[in-house]
Nucleic acid binder design. Structure first.
Lengths: 213, 213
DNA sequence: TAGATTGTTAATCGATTAACAATC
DNA sequence: TAGATTGTTAATCGATTAACAATC
């Protein structure tokens, strides 16, 4: 039974979990909503609302039971069994992500990495394959999710291969709108657009601060 | 004179530009709002609204003048002079981004890449440096923007160094909320959260489709 | 003209935030 | 108790979408 949650709440739940798993809070049994809010730069009301949505109740004096939060987050966003994922053309950026999951955090497991046009070993603990093995490995390892970061010219062709191999979720770093059937969920990230956004808002910030000189 | 634009509009303007620069539209002089909308999976009204905001007027019969759009986008989101940026710990993922800017698209230039704990050459056309050179290169090259993807344990220390070296905009791929003074603009990207989001909505899609079997 | 597109406003949607009674 | 936090509703905010008169 999966609850229907808002997009933003799903992302924050993932972040609450990592914060709770990694930070010093592990020696505390309870945490207040404003503590979580501060770390994530959000408001305590947002945290309480998110927790309410997944059925976590807090204690007026002690705050929220950390283990309860972790269990409820897992119930809310994890499936019953670990999910296998793979990286395609993701290098350094994927390393800490791979480490995070390899340490048993969350419910995803990076079981394969496909290197694009180089044969350097990047991931210490993830089997690395050539792109030619893509379809075979995905089927063998029962991989449903991948992060895709190949040059645009290959995006269309590889996407077709992915879909035919059974992939159902794609984190898309290519500068292409992938053509996929409606049962495949795609989340896009356009790094060029994000860099230009940073550039724009940096300039805005600069102007705004100068206005008060 | 920079116009105050909504976040989402800024990102889309960047995407319109890339689409117009790269796709086959270059042999057309005009484009309709619904053509741009289709490529970006948005609505034609959104495109017209965005273009209106930056002062582009279209022709009821021919659509929008592509060169006019490109000029107005540049006026709206680019500065007067090219902006130097650098990559820190970004590998393969940065390559096509670097190529995009190296080809003269947009107003950003990748002038340096800092490799984290390996000495492999990844970027064909970008000077690569050791992390120890960070502060020196940033100052010398007058770099204001960077994309940061180092392991979490180093994030705090390197961020301090960046800020002290004059960085004013950071695209943050580390799983850390960076502590920066208020004149520094930070855009966060949490890859673990995005992968868990893909996993969640993939499951939702699956359930939803099964409901209609 | 007939038909298609622009430019713009109002309606809608989704998410965040403010606020506060209830609680211990 | 006094003071702090939870749980929840209503208000607000920002962005998208629907809709349509104006245009040629």
């Amino acid at each position: 039974m999966i609850i229907n949650l808002p997009e933003q709440t799903v992302e924050r739940l993932s972040q609450y979990r990592r914060i709770l798993l990694n930070y010093q809070y592990l020696d505390h049994a309870y945490i207040f909503s404003h503590n979580l809010a501060r770390v994530l730069k959000t408001k305590s009301g947002t945290v309480r609302r998110d927790l309410m949505l997944i059925g976590v109740s807090g204690d007026v004096h002690k705050g929220y039971d950390i283990n309860l939060i972790l269990r409820k987050i897992s119930e809310a966003i994890d499936g019953d069994t670990p999910e296998n994922i793979c990286f395609i053309g993701i290098g350094n950026l994927g390393r800490s992500v791979a480490n995070h999951f390899a340490a048993g955090n969350g419910n995803l497991r990076v079981v394969a990495a496909f290197l694009f046009d180089q044969h350097q070993s990047i991931f210490p603990d993830v089997p690395e394959y050539d792109l030619t093995m893509l379809s075979e490995v995905i089927k063998q390892q029962n991989i449903l999710i991948c992060a895709l970061a190949v040059p645009r010219d290959y995006a269309r062709e590889i996407t077709l291969l992915l879909v035919n191999s059974g992939i159902m979720g794609i984190l898309n770093f290519t500068a292409t709108q992938l053509q996929v059937p409606k049962h495949v969920f795609v989340e896009d990230y356009d790094m060029v657009a994000k860099l230009e956004k940073v550039s724009y808002f940096m300039k805005m910030t600069k102007n705004h601060l100068q206005a008060y000189d």
